[in-house]
Nucleic acid binder design. Structure first.
Lengths: 229, 229
DNA sequence: GGACGGATGACAGTTGCGTGACAAAACACC
DNA sequence: GGTGTTTTGTCACGCAACTGTCATCCGTCC
């Protein structure tokens, strides 16, 4: 069945849309924020995404951009604002269509069908190769893409932090001593082990929800550091 | 240049649309009836068709159906009627989008670009072999055709820039270090890595909407460059 | 309570990168 | 072959981000 994800913060509108879509034979899912929508879509991709522009937290424009970074799904903006600037900005951000609320469900589904018909841009015959990712709960590390994500959202880390994280990730679940890390990440045969502490600390600030109580990048007193799920 | 055919019986509106489109850098053609439009399109196909619904003789719906029989061109209905039945019928007939008059030219062109992004590459029944295209949002790279396009418009890049772009495109989503690029694009085993910077910079001027904040050709500090959607 | 290992915040030196200018080289066109 | 134009590689400058060090603070284990 064709699945549609509705990202809309107004409960009444979201529910109405979901019910109407189900009446039309779609499998409908809802999300109240862009963050939640992005997470849902990453976990279990729908065939279409409907998204409001005015959302708490990440707004619709930014949500579309983030979604487009790694998803080709047709996106239709459903907004109350009938303003040329918004329409142009949303389409530039990567949306495929823009309709103004309130919208007839029949029109919406007709537009979805039109989008489906039009299909996607041709990519290489064998398609792009997927980039390998190491996952630790909500944390994702992709050495090849040079990317770190938390709950799907990109996290900006520096080169040293990234190398350190990759080293830990590639030996997930094992303790690495400060000496080992100094040697593998920095190439130092000897040196101040405090250096490792500082970078681990900085890394925790970025990748842990509560840096004071790390869940993934943990300290083993007297032994070293370990990355775990 | 991108050509647009406007099928609209009201002379004033047609002329206004044509002038506005030309201002936006399109090659604009007009037709006052569906018959004339179909003939024009068959003789010299435009890249997009804008069509009114209420036309003398063959009406817009039927015009769309006839056009769709042997043309894959994106069709946008530009109508004064804001009626769900019309919208659904037009989309069902084969239109790709439907906007209500009066429409801002900026919105119209944004919708055309969105369609272009999504549109299938044209493959006439016994036309030329389709050329593989690597797509990154509004950016398209065709290594075989030696072509780069942004929102459908060809971008002039030099040979070195093109090779660099292809190398990045063929490893989309992965970081390539300056050394790797030097070696693969220039064939240098060693050399000044700043050379890569300069060419990346020049490439960005041409393919990024805002070269200072690149969306596709991004720098990963300390790691290298990456091309992403 | 003292000692130790680890966390953290501030800081200054360093590095990495973007950019504009320029000259040599390649190219196109007579 | 000569001339004008485009492309290419080199360089220098400047900004912003990163790095490593240090001093201090905190928690934990005897």
């Amino acid at each position: 069945m064709t699945a549609v994800l509705v990202i809309e913060d107004d409960d009444r509108i979201r529910l109405a849309l979901l019910l109407a879509l189900e009446d039309e034979g779609y499998e409908a899912r809802g999300a109240a924020t862009a963050e939640e929508g992005l997470r849902t879509q990453r976990r279990d991709p729908a065939d279409y995404v409907l998204v409001d522009l005015m959302l708490p937290g990440i707004d619709g424009f930014e949500g579309i951009r983030q979604l487009r970074r790694d998803d080709d799904v047709p996106i239709v903006v459903v907004s109350a604002r009938d303003d040329t600037h918004d329409i142009v900005a949303a389409l530039e951000a990567g949306a495929d269509d823009y309709v103004v609320k309130p919208v007839a469900i029949k029109e919406l589904t007709a537009r979805l069908r039109a989008l489906r018909r039009r299909g996607r841009t041709v990519t290489a015959p064998d398609g792009p190769e997927p980039v390998p990712v190491l996952a630790f709960g909500e944390l994702e590390v992709s050495p090849e893409a040079g990317e770190v994500r938390r709950s799907g959202e990109p996290v900006a880390v520096t080169r040293t932090e990234f190398r350190l994280l990759c080293e830990l990730a590639e030996h997930a679940g094992r303790v690495l001593s400060r000496q080992q890390l100094l040697s593998r990440v920095w190439g130092y045969d000897s040196g101040d082990e405090r250096l490792v502490d500082v970078h681990v600390g900085r890394l925790r600030q970025k990748i842990e929800a509560d840096p004071a109580n790390p869940r993934h990048l943990v300290t083993l007193r007297g032994l070293g550091y370990k990355l775990q799920r």
